[in-house]
Simulated assay, not measured.
Amino acid sequence: MERKTTNQVQDDLLTEFQALVSDTEKLLQHTAGLAGDQADQLRLQIHESLKRARETLRDAEGALRERGKAAVDATEGYVQEHPWQSIGISAGIGFLLGLLAARR
């Protein structure tokens, strides 16, 4: 499986959902007049679109999990290598948040 960037995954996801919406609109427009094979064919198209959308969502979820894990690992590594700087940064952020909270 090829590795996709976040933008590629988002574009794929958007394309899949646009196809899903289009197929759903077709189904709604033709539901009243269709019976038998035509209705079955549209249902199959909708099912396939939903299946593709689910697969794309799973891929996007996996990519986001990987990026999140990489960010956590990088943060943990930085904190372990620079503990005093991390404490200083945390104290500074806490101080700024305290000032903002006190203003309200």
Rank of each mutant, 00 (worst) to 15 (best):
A60D: 07
Q38I: 00
A74T: 03
A74H: 06
L34I: 00
A71V: 03
W84E: 15
H47Q: 15
R52K: 15
L20H: 11
T15M: 13
A39M: 09
I46Y: 12
I87P: 05
E81L: 14
F17R: 15
E48V: 12
A71S: 09
L28P: 01
D11W: 05
D23S: 10
E66N: 02
R58Y: 05
D40T: 08
K69V: 04
E25V: 11
L50R: 14
A74G: 00
T24V: 02
A53C: 09
D23W: 02
E61M: 09
E76I: 11
H82P: 04
D59K: 09
A70T: 01
L28R: 05
R58L: 14
L13D: 04
D37E: 12
E61A: 10
S49H: 06
A74W: 03
T56A: 14
H47A: 14
A32T: 03
D37F: 01
Q45A: 13
A71H: 06
E61C: 02
H30W: 00
D12P: 01
H30Q: 08
G36C: 04
Y78P: 04
S86A: 15
V72Y: 03
A39F: 08
G77C: 07
G36Q: 00
E81M: 13
S86Q: 10
L13I: 07
A53L: 06
A53D: 09
L20K: 08
D73F: 02
E16W: 02
R58G: 07
R43D: 04
E76C: 10
K26N: 07
G77T: 10
R54E: 12
L42I: 09
A32K: 10
G68K: 02
L20Q: 12
L20T: 06
L13P: 04
G33I: 11
L42S: 04
A63W: 01
A35L: 05
L20V: 05
Q80L: 15
R67K: 08
P83Y: 09
Q85Y: 12
V21I: 13
Q85A: 15
H30K: 05
K69F: 03
Q38V: 00
V21Y: 05
R52A: 14
R54S: 10
E61P: 01
E66D: 11
L57T: 13
D40V: 07
G68Y: 02
T56S: 15
Y78H: 14
D23R: 13
D11H: 10
T75L: 15
D37P: 08
D73R: 05
A63C: 02
D37K: 11
Y78C: 08
L27W: 03
Q18L: 14
R58T: 14
Q45F: 02
R65I: 10
G62P: 00
G36M: 06
R65F: 00
D37N: 09
Y78F: 15
